[in-house]
Design a protein around this nucleic acid. Structure first.
Lengths: 187, 187
DNA sequence: ATGCACATGTAAGCTGTTACATGATTTC
DNA sequence: GAAATCATGTAACAGCTTACATGTGCAT
């Protein structure tokens, strides 16, 4: 029933890189996975707790003076095994929903200028993502270049580059197309 | 709380094209929106019922001999207005999740051949989508070319073309990249 | 003094999917 | 005779997001 919850595997994945608190994991997702995956506290903390019970992670509570306590989780061998099993499984089909494309599909009766604004915004957004990618790519070429994960991180970034470039090109083409349409309608 | 439910607007959008039963709407989504939007009966029927109460659609029950009855819904002026208001609103940010990219990000310890298989599958999938797009494009150029919606449908298809081509190119590049990596590791 | 970063966690409430229930007709 | 299509709907169950609750320390 319903799709299987993949939060567990995302968290295990992050924990293969280093022991983390729930807060650390959230930060890692926001900083490095935000374009491919997202998690929120409402999921992270309960799943960490559950995984401890299942023996996939171990918890160590750190008490630092002048700071809140931290629950630092480390992945166990059992956790690594379960992550590995999942990584080998085929990717489940994902139900995609694009509000922008849906709005465009039904945009016959709204002003073209409104649609064009949405496209400009999408284009700006993807250009910003590209800029951000460049920073990470630089890190991969220098500080992170000897990590065994580096080639895979590079491949993921490469997807972002292809995808953003395609979206930007489409936005530009479509803006032009809609502007031409607008002029034809005025005649 | 939670994101707003957009099923309502998707259904209203379909009903601007022609009056439909819940079954018809599902078919339309599967046939023409499947790559940008998906709906299922569990949502369609309750939302149609609710929209009737709100006066956004009207219901007419058809009894045809030798066939099940059909509840055919038509959009009202109020429904058109509500759809239009939504179409004009900015697109809400969507939380994206790609299982393939997540698996790739954490793939350092699994066999490269497994990852390459996943990429081949993704590539095949997007090539099939491209093929399907070509059929629809042909319809847009002929049977549907005079509909006022045609330019917008064309733009949506165009996104699919850009996106699929980018994904296919990335898959090919990455497969090659991983194969090279595999050979280096063997040495 | 205000806001941000650190830090953990729960509860409420929606969203979304699948399975089930039902049954006729057409097509292979 | 089996399978697909037509056709409507509900219930159960997950999944996901947001708001809330709580508190410290640092920087501007």
């Amino acid at each position: 029933m319903a799709k299987t919850n993949k939060t567990k595997f995302a968290l295990l994945g992050v924990l293969t890189l280093r022991p983390c608190s729930g807060y650390d994991i959230k930060k890692f997702c926001d900083n490095h996975l935000s374009h491919i995956w997202n998690e929120n506290y409402g999921h992270i903390y309960p799943v960490l707790k559950q995984m401890e019970i299942e023996g996939l992670v171990t918890k160590k509570t750190e008490h630092n003076e002048g700071r809140p306590y931290r629950n630092v989780y480390s992945i166990t061998e059992k956790g690594r095994a379960e992550l590995n099993d999942w990584l080998l499984l085929p990717v489940e089909p994902y139900s995609f929903r694009s509000e922008l494309l849906l709005k465009m599909f039904f945009a016959a009766d709204i002003p073209l200028s409104n649609l064009i604004e949405k496209l400009e915004k999408k284009k700006d957004n993807d250009q910003q993502i590209l800029e951000y990618h460049k920073i990470i790519e630089q890190m991969l070429k220098t500080r992170l270049k000897d990590r065994k994960e580096a080639p895979f991180w590079w491949a993921v970034l490469s997807y972002g580059r292809h995808s953003c470039n395609a979206t930007i090109a489409w936005c530009e083409e479509t803006i032009k197309y809609l502007q031409d349409l607008d002029q034809q309608q005025e005649l």
